[in-house]
Design a protein around this nucleic acid. Structure first.
Lengths: 146, 146
DNA sequence: CTGCCTGCAAACGATTTGCACCAGC
DNA sequence: GCTGGTGCAAATCGTTTGCAGGCAG
């Protein structure tokens, strides 16, 4: 159901008369390889050396495209920056209040969450996600350095 | 446990040697009166006529202060703007994918959500919140206008 | 009175847009 | 070769910061 691999994105591009450019491929590769739900800027920093002349603008545009193709999602968090998630299936997040780090909650770690009955309200629920907030291991452990 | 009324904020200010200014009172009043989880700019627009000479900067600073006092929270969503919630107790949200509208899920509409067991991971969960995404009534009903 | 708070302006960071050139198909 | 995609620069939007004056306690 969701687009998860380079090949699927390639096909999705074909189907819609879109080009599979180096930029699109590389940015998707980077996003798929990361588990930290990066922002557009983080992706840019990570990829710019691999794609000479890459523009920040392109990263924004490509990420937007990936979201439209169903290959990525924007993740909900309480900061002022958009962050992206290559996992478009239903899953949940652990968010550190201190460093704003965000990792997936392993599948099966949370039991069934019931969908509320909202017939009366007119709101149609299509999906949901849970953010568990707290302090991550790295932030709690002062860590010997400094 | 949480600070919910003007009086409680007034006392919290007192206790910490902070002034309860017109700006702080008015912005809190506005936030408490709204159910749409507004951004700083939305608050500014709503309040500027009531507080002559009010600065956008002050709205940002006051909202930040309210969060520090425990009178408000930043809400998690997938946009690039910080939005605020006067309800600091555990509750959940309905988020419209189309208009980005956000309302509280009425209490009791969702059953118990279990906390995952993360002893091994080093992550300490302090709280959680659920975002139910979908289409709100206003966005689904084309509405006769236009 | 005195220090905290605000307003202003400017800096800053994230994101978007217009346009000319370049590269997939 | 066409058409869409990219890079660049500038505009825009959201947010923060430095400083001088104003108000609550």
């Amino acid at each position: 159901m969701s687009v998860q691999t380079i090949e699927e994105v390639a096909r999705a591009c074909r189907d819609q008369g879109m080009a599979l450019t180096v930029q699109r491929r590389t940015i998707l590769e980077e996003l798929l390889a990361r588990r930290d739900h990066p922002s557009a800027d983080m992706i840019f920093d990570a990829v710019k050396s691999r794609v000479p002349g890459l523009s920040r603008t392109t990263v924004y545009r490509v990420l937007d495209t990936l979201v439209r193709l169903g290959a990525a999602r924007k993740v909900a968090h309480d900061g002022a920056v958009v962050r992206f998630d290559p996992n478009t299936e239903r899953h949940h997040h652990l968010v550190c209040e201190r460093c704003a780090g965000m990792v997936d909650l392993p599948r099966g770690m949370v039991g069934d969450i019931p969908l509320p009955d909202l017939k009366a309200s007119g709101f149609t629920i299509k999906d949901f996600s849970v953010n568990y907030s707290g302090i991550c291991d790295g932030c709690r452990t002062p860590s010997q350095g400094s």
